[in-house]
């Protein structure tokens, strides 16, 4: 019988509707960033699955990649530079909004989106000029599946960034205190970036070595 009431718990129960949004709930801090990170850990393991398959087949193969399916290096290297630097650019946008600079956020996020789009275009161009397709051999199976799956993630990241830009049109939607959406788009973009670095090392650099 030593129970006591929390000092602030006698507030009226919040609306279910606002509860659903879970934004600045008052009862618990915004946990969406934590949720996203947990999700990305799991999502990353799907890539780990693909990478493992790639590495095991690589270890078992007599020649990897087989002769007719060599990889190109120059274009992907340029693409890598674009994607990796976009991670720094997007962070500038995040820094801007933390200072309440919405215009800065918009500027840096537009640049990131353009870089991401360039990356995707480069990827498509690479697919078209490689001279072999998904079904050519086991290597090309792995190559297209893994890069394609990553490309899908870049595409989703791009949509998230565009979503942030769309919302940022509304005055006061993002501010010094309210920028979880901005942060989440950034984290996702870093994730895509990190996966690409691993992918580039495994599929491109290891294939050329």
């Amino acid at each position: 019988m030593q129970g006591t009431i929390e000092s602030n718990s006698d507030l009226p129960t919040p609306l279910v509707e606002t509860h659903g949004d879970a934004i600045d709930h008052g009862e618990h801090p915004d946990l969406r960033v934590l949720g996203l990170i947990t999700f990305l850990c799991s999502e990353g393991l799907m890539f780990v699955g693909f990478f493992t398959v790639f590495l095991v087949y690589r270890a078992a193969a007599a020649a990897w990649p087989p002769e007719e399916t060599e990889v190109e290096l120059l274009l992907p290297a340029i693409n890598t530079v674009i994607l990796v630097s976009s991670s720094f650019v997007i962070h500038l946008g995040d820094t801007a909004i933390k200072k309440g600079d919405v215009a800065g956020l918009r500027k840096w996020y537009i640049i990131t989106a353009l870089m991401g789009a360039t990356f995707l275009a480069g990827q498509v161009y690479e697919y078209m000029t490689l001279g072999y397709g998904l079904t050519t051999n086991l290597f090309s199976n792995c190559f297209y599946l893994t890069t394609g799956f990553h490309g899908l993630h870049v595409f989703i990241g791009l949509i998230l960034i565009l979503g942030v830009l769309w919302r940022s049109r509304r005055e006061g939607h993002y501010g010094t205190e309210h920028h979880v959406g901005v942060e989440m788009a950034e984290i996702y973009w870093h994730f895509v970036d990190v996966i690409w670095i691993v992918l580039f090392t495994l599929i491109y650099i290891l294939s050329v070595l």
Binding site: T38, C41, S42, E43, G44, L45, M46, F47, V48, G49, F50, V53
Partner: peptide, 11 residues
């Protein structure tokens, strides 16, 4: 579930 399910999804 978080650790193992993605691998099944990959397979």
């Amino acid at each position: 579930a978080l650790v193992s399910t993605p691998v099944l999804a990959a397979g």
